[in-house]
Every structure is written in structure tokens, then in C-alpha cells.
Design a protein around this nucleic acid. Structure first.
Length: 201
DNA sequence: GTCAGGATTACCT
DNA sequence: GGTAATCCTGACT
């Protein structure tokens, strides 16, 4: 599919990613699902972003690539996956925080070592999809192991505060987290599940 | 070599 | 909702 929407405004790119079908092929096994939760990170002026004030180091180097680049970082022993937007002068990206599992659910259960909560958090979905930093950091969407394509369309998108950035001053209050209203496969919130998980039709 | 710092998770009350 | 577990990365007060 056409990924040029990732080259534009990061906030609207984040919203447009909701509902897209994401899949990975790890060790020859395909797993995938529909994106239900994302967060935007805006670089230079965003205190919560790894690239705040254009800070640049080995860890966040991939944010200074052009759109379609995948940025994977590790923390607390978990991996988190971002899609980079814009270009090398604007280190912005979208953190994929949760998906609705569709393909390879049995494999996800095996990788997670549990039956439920397979993909409702940034560290959980990378584990289910087999995404690790050593293999996926710096790879490119629809060229390497990670693919996205058209999937579902949300009936309504909810904007809320980002998770896990409690010490980032005013950036704490930015409404840069976007979820599909009524979809149960999101982190933190205990949402009221709606018909068809909040997707159109 | 050492050490502090996380865009987390899971399990407790 | 609170907190312990966990653990890799990167910089070096």
C-alpha cells in the first residue's frame, strides 16, 4: 500500500495507523493483527520524546532516518516498536502500543507463555510478533520483515494522555495517545467493549 | 568494569 | 493503584 501518509504530520499519521493490518515474519512464521493503540512522539519540542531538543545518540539514531524506517528500542527487558515519520531533519515517530491479534494466535500464546493479554501493550505485542531489536531495528516497512496494509476503520478515535512518562513536565498532558473506541485490545484502560470491537461494519 | 536509567509487565492488596 | 522484578544499553559523575 501507499505509505506516503507517514511522511506528513505525525499526529495524523498516528491516527491513520489505527486499524491498519500489521504482520511480521519471524523465523518463517507469520503473525499479525489490527493496530488498536498508538502514541505520537514529536522530537525537538516534545520532552517525552527520545529525540527531545534533537538529542541524538546510538540508541535513537534510527529516528533520524526517513519515514518507513522501524525504530526498536529495549527497556526493562522488553522491546518497543516505532514507525518513523517525516525525514532525517525531523526525528518523529509513532509508537505501536497494542494490536488486535488475528494471525498466528497459537504462536503468540507460545511466545508469550500465556493464553490471554497477548498484544495489549508495547512490550507484549513485540514479544507476540517476535520483534527484537537486533533483528528489526532499522529495517523498513513493507521491504523487510514488517508489513502493513489496509485493515479496518475505527468508528471513533479517542485521544488521551500518553502512558509511562510521568516525569516529563508539560509533555505529560499532551493528548498524543490514540485508541479505537470500544476495542478491548488496548493497554491500561478497562474499556467498555463495543459491537465489532469498535470497527466500522 | 561499573552503574544508573528507563515510551514495561505482572502480580500483589 | 502500588510495586517488585528484570535487564539491556550507553555513558563514564
Amino acid at each position: 500500500m501507499d505509505l506516503s501518509f507517514l511522511a506528513g504530520d505525525t499526529i495524523s499519521a498516528a491516527k491513520q495507523l489505527l486499524g491498519k493490518y500489521i504482520s511480521t515474519e519471524t523465523d518463517g512464521i507469520v503473525t499479525g493483527g489490527y493496530i488498536t493503540e498508538v502514541e505520537a512522539y514529536l522530537g525537538a519540542d516534545d520532552k517525552a520524546a527520545h529525540a527531545y531538543q534533537l538529542k541524538r545518540n546510538k540508541k535513537n539514531e534510527m529516528m533520524y532516518r526517513d519515514y518507513r524506517t522501524i525504530y526498536v528500542y529495549t527497556m526493562h527487558g522488553h522491546h518497543c516498536m516505532n514507525f518513523i515519520t517525516k525525514d532525517e531533519h525531523h526525528p518523529e515517530g509513532v509508537l505501536i502500543r497494542a494490536i488486535e491479534p488475528v494471525t498466528g494466535i497459537e504462536v503468540m500464546k507460545a511466545r508469550r507463555g500465556r493464553e490471554h493479554n497477548l498484544t495489549d501493550g508495547p512490550g507484549k505485542l513485540t514479544q507476540s510478533l517476535g520483534v527484537t531489536r537486533d533483528v528489526y531495528n532499522g529495517t523498513r516497512l513493507n521491504e523487510d520483515g514488517v508489513s502493513i496494509s489496509d485493515g479496518k476503520t475505527p468508528i471513533e478515535i479517542i485521544a488521551s494522555k500518553r502512558i509511562g512518562i510521568d516525569n516529563k513536565e508539560e509533555a505529560v498532558d499532551y493528548l498524543y495517545r490514540f485508541t479505537v473506541k470500544g476495542n478491548p485490545y488496548v493497554s491500561k484502560d478497562k474499556v467498555k467493549r463495543e459491537d465489532n470491537n469498535g470497527w466500522i461494519e
